[in-house]
């Protein structure tokens, strides 16, 4: 169980970790919270991320990078997973265009872990959190397991 103090340490550590990723740094990603198989990461709006200059809407590709990073962070925040993970697959549904000028926050949850595979679902939200911008499901590698898990990959 994590106390507030250790959660704070985790957050600082996670942010330090994410700042080591050059692409995460280039996107200005900030970890909002992490722990217990969940992660929330914010990507501030930037003009250079616009995918359609006519509308000013952020490119889907930047949203994929955010979702991928957040999914990986959720896996590494899972109590059973040790070490670095890699994405096996990611599927994203783009529900609507993000509102121009607004940052995007991803929330990912690693909801199931086997000896080899971690399963993740995630949403991306702008300031209107009631209407998600995108949803994703992903599978990630599990390099090492800390404890017992169901046998075999799904």
């Amino acid at each position: 169980m994590s106390t507030d103090a250790t959660a704070g340490v985790d957050l600082a550590l996670s942010n330090e970790l994410i700042l080591r990723l050059p692409q995460a740094r280039a996107l200005g990603l900030e970890i909002v919270s992490t722990g217990d198989g969940r992660a929330e990461i914010h990507m501030p709006f930037a003009a250079q991320l616009v995918g359609d200059p006519e509308t000013g809407v952020i490119h889907g590709g930047a949203v994929s990078t955010l979702m991928d990073t957040c999914g990986g962070a959720a896996v590494m925040a899972h109590p059973l997973v040790a070490g670095h993970t890699a994405t096996i697959s990611l599927r994203i549904d783009y529900l609507r265009a993000a509102t121009p000028g607004q940052g995007i926050t991803a929330r990912a949850e690693c909801h199931h872990v086997t000896r080899s595979v971690a399963f993740v679902r995630a949403v991306a939200l702008d300031e209107d959190a009631a209407r998600p911008v995108a949803m994703a499901t992903g599978t990630f590698t599990v390099p090492q397991l800390r404890g017992e898990a169901p046998e075999g990959a799904a």
Binding site: Q23, H59, A62, S64, T65, M67, T69, A86, T87, L90
Partner: peptide, 12 residues
């Protein structure tokens, strides 16, 4: 390369 970047590359 960041997986998100290669994914974005394909989307672009």
């Amino acid at each position: 390369l960041h997986g998100g970047v290669t994914a974005a590359f394909l989307e672009v």
